[in-house]
Amino acid sequence: MLSWDELQKAKFTEANARERAFGLVDKGTFTEFVSPRDRMPSPHLPVLGEAIGYDDGVVTGIGLIGKRPVFVVSQEGRFIGGAVGEVHGAKMVQAIKLALKAYEDVKVKYPDSYEERLPAVVISFETGGVRLHESNAGLLAHAEVMDQFQDARGKIPIIAVIGSKIGCFGGMGFVGAATDVIIMSEQGRLGLTGPEVIEQEMGKDEFDASNKALVFRTTGGKHKYIMQDANFLVEDSVAGFYQQLQEVMKLPFAEIEKFRRIGSKKLVEEQLELVKLAVGLGAKDSMDVWKYYGNEDPAKLVDMGPDEFLKVAKRRERKLG
């Protein structure tokens, strides 16, 4: 494995889940939980003749960013598309549960200064959601993650990192949306229904899944950034994400909560305005929406480098937050 310093320079899209987990926290601070050495693969794959992995496609553990304990969940897209089965799901759920335990412990021990040691959860998503080979168990695990998210509300921040090739789709698409902060790269994608399924449902004329530019404009990092569905857009490197995490950790929790898109009646009402816009605008393409938000020549944004994009792109204005 690359050293931490080498990893920072590596492309996030090309790093594997374990490398990302190591690189997203301070140098030398990551400790893995239920690592491959614990040999806890899925018990359900062998009967289907499907290859097993000792980490079941997800790396979980703890590291530090400054003084703050950071519980990391990092999904591995190369293992069955990062899909969530029983073991994979249990690791995700327990990482959040342990972060909440850490929160209680820190509060007791440092009653006057616990904010500077406030634990956080960072999830690097690379998944299409439920693993079909153990679909029922995967589905139930998704519900447990959402349940833990609600427990974490107002206590510890949950931060989504989406910069992988597979992105964050299916049931994990709404898990991603339910986090406090979303950091994406241009290469990251976030949504519910993957391009192939949309094509299948609506026909190739309406949505051509092989059209990469179309796929990225619809669910990619730039679009989500303009829509305010992603809070931050970073370059495709481990350092890009790590440094953004450091910045987020400097903010008071009350500020972090303002990044939320959903999770209260007010936020639902804000989102409903957006749904009304969807109807009123009759947008056929995400670029129609970009234009609506004041980007006169939206096509120009597509190929723009990240630095220039961040300078010129106009985003949806939020009334809240």
């Binding site: 609600q150 229904t193 969807a278």
Partner: peptide
């Protein structure tokens, strides 16, 4: 859940996530 292009552009995932929360 609604599987369309408009749904993805405006973020269907937020809608269902919202109801769950």
């Amino acid at each position: 859940n609604g599987p369309g292009k408009t749904e993805e552009i405006f973020g269907m995932n937020k809608a269902t996530g919202s109801y769950q929360l």
